[in-house]
């Protein structure tokens, strides 16, 4: 089984639209939405939830007011300003480091595990699908990404592929989205920041020794920058596997909860088919 992770230097470059389109095209696969901060894939996939589980991704300090002697040691040592003036923990600030528990002379503080989201495994017509929804302002999303992938693993039959809708950026969620993948597909747009965003995310892939492939979305919006991106890729050993044209029909299709593929956009469909052919060949070649 091969895992392909779709990422981008910044959000909104069209990862989910691409993965949703590929979900129609690619056979024998599972799907994971690892963009846990802004999961979108479940909106486009008709799915029936098989398993929902609470996710406990953080710990928080709790002060027992009955035992507290109001000495203020916890407030002194807390580097996250998570203890207020009447010696209560402010959950949104607490990192769960436990420094306060170490200094409390009355033993009034303990760390408790807190629920920070849910993971889901669902059945869709296009294969088993896992995703997660984080509680508002919750932390620990890198671990949650891992959790989503783990949940999906448990439902593995003999699928050939896992398509991972990854996270944007270069931080912990991205790293957790790409570990163990056979290839990373970076989706970029030809904007002023497009190349530097792409360079950064491909840098992460290279740092972890995973082959990086590139898809340029809305390539015709700026032919000069598209050429720059292609040059950069040629010179640095990253293959451009797809160039998708700008098309208002994509936006219209999304407004109707459809992928451009379902909306019958021929030009778009051909590009996606070609992209998948190249991707399949490249990943096969890595063996």
């Amino acid at each position: 089984m091969k895992q392909i992770s779709f990422v981008s230097g910044k959000g909104g470059t069209g990862k989910s639209t691409l993965v949703a389109s590929l979900s129609l095209l690619v056979q024998e696969k599972m799907l994971a939405d690892c963009d846990v901060d802004a999961p979108n894939l479940h909106i486009l996939l008709d799915h029936q939830v098989l398993v929902m589980e609470d996710y406990h991704g953080a710990r928080e300090a709790v002060i027992d007011p009955g035992m507290c002697v109001k000495c203020g040691r916890c407030k002194e040592v807390c580097r996250f300003n998570a203890v207020n003036d009447i010696f209560e923990i402010i959950p949104m600030h607490c990192e769960g480091c436990g420094a306060c528990t170490l200094v409390c002379p009355a033993g009034a503080i303990r760390l408790e595990t807190v629920k920070t989201g849910q993971t889901y495994v669902a059945q869709t017509e296009r294969g088993t699908f896992a995703h997660a929804l984080l509680d508002i302002g919750a932390e620990g999303s890198g671990k949650l990404v891992t959790e989503v992938r783990k949940k999906l693993d448990q439902f593995q039959k003999d699928e050939k592929w896992v398509l991972i809708d990854g996270s944007p950026g270069i931080g912990c969620v991205v790293i957790a989205s790409i570990t163990g993948a056979s290839a990373v597909v970076a989706v970029a747009e030809p904007t002023k920041s497009g190349l530097s965003d792409l360079e950064r995310v491909l840098g992460v892939a290279r740092h972890f020794g995973i082959p990086g492939l590139v898809c340029i979305n809305k390539f015709d919006l700026n032919p000069e920058i598209t050429a720059e991106i292609e040059n950069f890729c040629n010179n640095n050993g990253f293959l451009v596997i797809g160039k998708i044209p700008y098309d208002p029909a994509v936006m219209k299709a999304l407004q109707e909860f459809k992928t451009p593929l379902e909306a019958g956009n021929r030009r778009f469909a051909m590009e996606i088919e070609n992209l998948w052919k190249k991707l399949e060949w490249e990943v096969g070649r890595e063996e």
Binding site: G142, V173, A176, G180, F208
Partner: peptide, 12 residues
């Protein structure tokens, strides 16, 4: 070793 993921864990 396999690539590090800085403590976020990874399935592989």
């Amino acid at each position: 070793t396999v690539p590090s993921h800085f403590g976020m864990g990874g399935p592989k």
